[in-house]
């Protein structure tokens, strides 16, 4: 309860500071501010797919349904944050490049991530039996994660991209303004905490639902 309030205050402070305290990067001008929202979303997307993959492998090892809850929830949240990153990126692209979408390598790779999550959901929805669904989607999640390092780190390095890491972060050397950096890391932390909070809520909900489904026959009997 206290943590939840702290998270709200933390993110609110970061947003306010982003508008009143942080300077703007020369070329990007007022669109600089998208980075406090867009990059944390993209980061949570990768984190969520990684979380889903780890939970899936743990499920395959232990066959404990709690790990399947984690895998499914992380993928749902990943899809949500991936949409946030894609939409904020497209809006920024409209402002800077003049078009919402033009298949820049970065746009391509985030779109592929989006498709991976959607396919994961489609696979889950096609299997009725919970145990079989858990096993098969765990296999899919593990194989899908193979493409993530390629999409996120290899493809943008091979192909020419207009994506502005060079303006903010040249070749891994961080030369951001310290004020931008503080707010950026603050938002990164805030988004990560937001992800884990939502994850925990949803996993608990799924557990309650499963317990109720298991208890349903007994309840019926007691009522009769």
């Amino acid at each position: 309860m206290i943590l939840r309030g702290l998270l709200l205050v933390w993110i609110a402070i970061c947003i306010v500071l982003a508008f009143v305290w942080a300077p703007l990067v020369p070329v990007l001008e007022s669109t600089t501010r998208v980075l406090y929202f867009h990059i944390p979303s993209a980061w949570v997307t990768v984190l969520a797919l990684g979380w889903s993959m780890v939970a899936s492998l743990l499920y395959l090892r232990t066959r404990n349904m709690a790990f399947d809850d984690h895998a499914a929830t992380a993928a749902e949240l990943g899809l949500l944050f991936c949409i946030c990153a894609t939409v904020s990126g497209a809006v920024w692209a409209k402002a800077m490049w003049g078009a919402y979408w033009n298949w820049d390598p970065r746009e391509t790779s985030i779109f592929f991530l989006l498709l991976i999550y959607v396919a994961y959901m489609a696979l889950r929805s096609a299997i009725d039996e919970p145990v079989r669904r858990a096993r098969l989607s765990a296999i899919y999640s593990a194989i899908a994660f193979v493409s993530v390092p390629f999409l996120m780190f290899v493809v943008p390095r091979i192909y020419f991209s207009l994506h502005p890491d060079p303006l903010i972060n040249t070749r891994g050397k961080v030369d951001m303004d310290p004020r931008i950096r503080i707010i950026f890391y603050g938002m990164l932390l805030g988004f990560t905490a937001l992800f884990f909070w939502l994850l925990r809520l949803r996993v608990r909900l799924l557990r309650v639902e499963r317990r109720r489904a298991e208890a349903a026959p007994a309840l019926e009997e007691a009522r009769a």
Partner: peptide, 10 residues
């Protein structure tokens, strides 16, 4: 097709 497509895209 739908499920294998994302894995095949790279």
């Amino acid at each position: 097709a739908g499920v294998s497509f994302p894995v095949l895209l790279p």
